[in-house]
Each structure stands twice: as C-alpha cells, then as structure tokens.
Nucleic acid binder design. Structure first.
Lengths: 338, 338
DNA sequence: TTGTAGGCGTTATCAT
DNA sequence: ATGATAACGCCTACAA
C-alpha cells in the first residue's frame, strides 16, 4: 500500500469520466443541468474513485457552507444537550450542518469562539442569552452574519430571539410559593455575571416578594456554579441561617438536585421540613425523590424553533423575529404549603 | 451602513500595511521570521482592520486544520457529554478545535458523518466503539487519517483505542450480584445491533452466570433504547414474569433510573422487593433514591486520554496504542443480598 | 448540454 | 527579512 494517501479530486473524476470539471461539479450541485446519461456515468465514476468533495474548497468557491454555528455554556447541562439536539435535527432536515462550541460558562471566551466560527464561514449563528459586549453585535452585523439568541427573550431589546421570559417564569413560581404561605425563602442562584438568564430568575423572585409586600433585599441569596455539588454546599450553608428558610428556591434543577441530596443527608424531610424548587424541568426533575417542583421549559421546541427561524433569516435574507415560548409551572412533591 | 459586508482579507492587510501578503502571513504563523518592527506594524493594522484569517482558505493552503472530529451516539447521555467535554478541553490546550457530530444511535449514519468530517479536513477522528463496517477502517487508513476508538477495548483487535472491557466490567458486577445470593436475574439491555458496548455488557452477565453453573440462555433479556422511559417500560414488563426476578440489572444508568422510577410507581420497595443495578456511574446514579449500585467508568479520564493519544498520533505520526482503563464496582443502596 | 477559465484567501517555495 | 507567485480544490459566469 502506498504510504502517501492519494485523495481523488474533482479533476480526477473529470479526467476519469472524460468530461470537464464543470460537468462533474454540476452533477453534484445542479443535477437538472446535466443529461441523464452523463449524470449516471459521472456518478458511477465518483463512486468508483471514492470521491468526496473537499469542503473547504467548496466553501471558498461558493462562499457558502451550509453550516450553522452554536455557542453554548456547556454540553453537560441537559437543557442545552436537548435543545441543541433538536436544533441539529431541524437543521439537518434543511440540509445544514451544526458546529458546536462550548465555553464552560466563561462568557469572555465567547468573542473568540464567534470569530472562529465566522472564520469558518458559518452561514448563521445561535447564541445563548442576550448579554454580551455590544462590539459583538456590531461585528456580526457588519459582516452580515444572521444570528439568533435563545433561552431568553427580553421586551427591551430587539435582536431576533426565541426563548422565554426568565424573570416572569420565576416570578410565577415565587408567587405560587408565597401563596402557599411561605415567608422565609432562600434562593440559590447560578453565577449572574454574564448570565442574564440567571439574573432574570433572581429578579423574578424579588419582584414577587415586592408584589407581596415583602422586602426583596431581605432575600438570602447564594450565588454558585450550576453543579450538583455546589448546589448541595449552598443548601447546607443556607440552612445554617436562623430562622431557617421554609423553602429553598434554586436557579435550576441541577442546583435543586444537589439541594435535595444534601437535605436528605442532613436528615431533613422534604417537603415536611423544607420545600425545594428548581427551574428547567430536565428529566431528572421527575426522577428525583421527592419529585421536583419546577418551571417547565420546552427546550426541544426552543431548539427546533430557533433552527427554523435562523434558516428563514438566512434563506429569505429576513431580519428575524422575536418569539416567546410559554413555560408552565410543574407542581410536584418537593413543594408543600407551610 | 453599506449593505454589502466588506470583509478584510490578507491582501487588504498587506496593502494597508505596505507589505506583501507573504509577510502578513508570516506575522500570523511564523513570527520569528519577521523583524520586530514590521511585526508590530502589521499586527496593528490587522487589529485596526478587524481582520480574521479565513479558515477555509488556510485549510486549503496548509492542508491542515488543527481540527479534530468526533462522532458520538448522542449528546443527551451524560457519559458522552462528560467524556467529550474532557476531550475538548485537552484538545484546546494543544491548540486543536473539536468538531462533534452525533447520530442518535443510528450507526448507519456514521459512515457519511465520517466522510463529512474528513471532507472538512479534520486532522484526526474520535469514534465510539469498535464495531463498524471494515470499509470504514480501510477508508480511513487509505486516506491516512489518524483515529482512535473510545469507550471500549477489545483484546482481539488492534486499532488504537482507549476504553475499558465492557464485558469484564459487567461480569464483575454480575459476580457480585450472584455472590449476594440472587438467582433470578432479569437484564435490560440497550439496543445491541451496532453497539458493541451493549453487547459486551450482556455477554458479561452471561459469562458470570455460566461461571456460576447457571444457564445463560435462561436469562430474561429485554432490549430497548437507552432512555428513562423505555427503561421504565422494560422494567414493568420484566416484573410480569413468574417467578419475578429478585434483581434487575440494567445496561446503563439511564435505563436503571427508569426502572427505579417505575418500581416505586408500582409500589415496590428497592432493594427489599427487588434490587436494581446500572452501569456508567453518571452523576444521576448517586442522586437517585435509593442510590444506584453501578459500575464506575472514568469518562473524563477517558476523554482526556483519548485526546492525548490522538494528538500524539497526529504529531508524531505514530500508529497509536491501546489503553485499557480501570473501572470499579460502586456498591450503593439499590442492591441488597437476597 | 458541456467546456473554458477566472477567482475564492491562504500558505509555502523560490528568489532577492 | 521580504516579495512574487504558484498551488490548494472547487464553483460559476461566460462561451460554445
């Protein structure tokens, strides 16, 4: 076997088939412009040679990649895994390929990731949340790259987005909690810096408190990374307070899972001794024991819708819309009236 | 604002800086070959113009992308999310970028995905498991693309790989189960077709049974997709048997989570009425109530090691090694002696 | 319907 | 140390 791999090119196929490279290219991209006879012949020799078009060359010549990029905080949180899976599936049915990049919740990495994806020639971009340096938006607009924001929608901004109102959603949950008689609430939040979803959720609790005549500034808040372990630690810390909270609300289900685990470990019964709530409604939420009261977010729908909208923007050269999806309160065992 | 985005190229930078394109290119790739003075000047104008090298053009000219591709069954199973995260982190520290592609456990899609990634010019490839049509391997070898297989190692094949012995691991767990007195075992397996990890695990149970003088052919097996819901259904079906199994072993933790949920729903106490075991030791396993007895697989280590090895293969042009990682039995509440 | 040839943005080889 | 210039593999007017 030869040591230097000999990869066939368009030219090789053309020579072998006895046609021009243009014809071979047409067989690949615009079949209708080629006679059935040559098409068959060319396809056969493509097959025989095991030819695959070189993507980079194609991208350069066509100025188009049929590729869409996505930048997410992490693949390890099920919400993004799910949403992206749906995003990808929808892209696929429209002939697009997905390029993912994750930044481990380090928003300062995002700018370079965007440049990298743009340098690769992505036709469009999916970004999470709204909050980022304005230069990024102007950069994208200057280069004419369509993009859509997901997992959030804000009334006071107008970039195309598909998501939900994190603040209103959490407010709804807090309203419920308060209506059940709870007055001592503790809140475990994700890191807020650079994460407007986390900020919105906290704000939702505060708004609810205020609406009920309570002082939002008295809300105990612990801010920590979105991990089970850190959720557990935060919960433990929070229960040192005197008086103890009767309910600990968490910024997402992962934190809540940690809280529930730690509570059991501390010998606390949920929800008798303390109620716990989450946010997202990942699969885990209904598996936990007790099952977790949370906000159900339609991650799959969001991913699929984002893909649809982005493709429309790309193909119709439209400027994109803002779509707000409904979330719902998922009342389960972990929350009880006091 | 102009409607046609004007993206600066190497040429633009060169013109603006009053040097040749070659010099600009050197400033980007081989700084040492350029005088400090011009370097500074060029870098400044690069900055000023907001220039970013075109990846596709670069790939074409350099025949190198610093990109590595990975094809996984799904992003939704935490084991791959974790492993890949580690894989990516390691790649990053060596200057490589990751391109992921998932196929929803449809192995027949893999071949095209491989071609796609190869067409994009990936410098190397991470694949899961060993089982695939031999043409794929010959294709990869013909094109001289380094690849490494993960999540499995087999004694009787010699492609480079980093993983563990799925069969031996599950045998260890089954041995434990049998040593605790269980004789009526039920097994819920993932879909075996095209998935050698799932097959190996089932085989491990069978081998253990045989070693204990039991007939492997009497082992009740339900084969189903790796989902919580299907795990629940399979568990319910399995408990219809007469006599009922005293332990239900599952091909992974996700199935086991479904089984535990369904068991509770059926009013069965675990492990008093029935024991349940999993495989993988994802975070969920220790969060479940009762906590899940399972096989701990070092997914992060596996991902990191795979990246190391693959990079070595690429940079040293070496042929790669086979590394078998240790797994361990994680004994938790869900398994009890009968 | 098919062929010719210019161009896409870099890198890399030669000169200078 | 720097500059010309030929690849790299493909697409796409434009011609025939």
């Amino acid at each position: 076997m030869s040591n230097s791999p000999n990869i066939p090119t368009l030219f090789d196929v053309a020579r072998e088939a006895g046609v021009s490279t243009a014809t071979v290219s047409r067989c690949l991209n615009e079949k209708q412009k080629v006679s059935q006879k040559t098409l068959d012949h060319v396809m056969k020799t493509i097959e025989a040679l095991g030819y695959t078009p070189n993507f980079n060359a194609r991208a350069m010549a066509a100025k188009r990649t049929n590729t869409i990029g996505a930048i997410i905080p992490t693949m390890e949180n099920a919400i993004f895994a799910r949403g992206l899976q749906a995003f990808q599936e929808t892209l696929l049915t429209h002939g697009y390929t997905l390029l993912v990049s994750s930044n481990a919740y380090k928003p300062q990495l995002e700018e370079e990731q965007i440049r990298t994806l743009v340098a690769r020639g992505v036709d469009g971009l999916l970004l999470i949340g709204y909050e980022r340096p304005p230069e990024i938006y102007s950069y994208l607009e200057r280069r004419g790259i369509p993009f859509i924001l997901a997992w959030i929608t804000l009334a006071d901004q107008d970039h195309p987005s598909v998501g939900f109102d994190n603040c209103a959603a959490m407010r709804m949950l807090a309203d419920k909690v308060l209506s059940m008689g709870h007055r001592k609430i503790g809140y475990i939040s994700g890191i807020i810096e650079g994460n407007d979803r986390a900020r919105g959720r906290l704000e939702g609790v505060r708004e609810s408190l205020a609406a009920h005549g309570l002082d939002p500034d008295n809300l105990p808040v612990i801010e920590t990374a979105y991990e089970v372990e850190t959720g557990a630690q935060a919960f433990e810390a929070m229960m040192q307070a005197d008086p103890k909270p009767t309910v600990v609300m968490c910024g997402n289900d992962v934190l809540a899972a940690g809280a529930i685990g730690k509570a059991k470990q501390m010998g606390l019964r949920i929800p008798d001794d303390v109620s716990i709530t989450g946010f997202d409604d990942i699969e885990l939420a209904s598996i936990l024991d007790p099952s977790l009261t949370t906000i159900h977010v339609p991650h799959r729908l969001m991913g699929g819708t984002a893909a649809q909208e982005l493709i429309t923007m790309i193909e119709e050269q439209s400027s994109g819309v803002r779509r707000t999806l409904d979330v719902r309160l998922e009342l389960r065992e972990s929350l009880q009236a006091v």
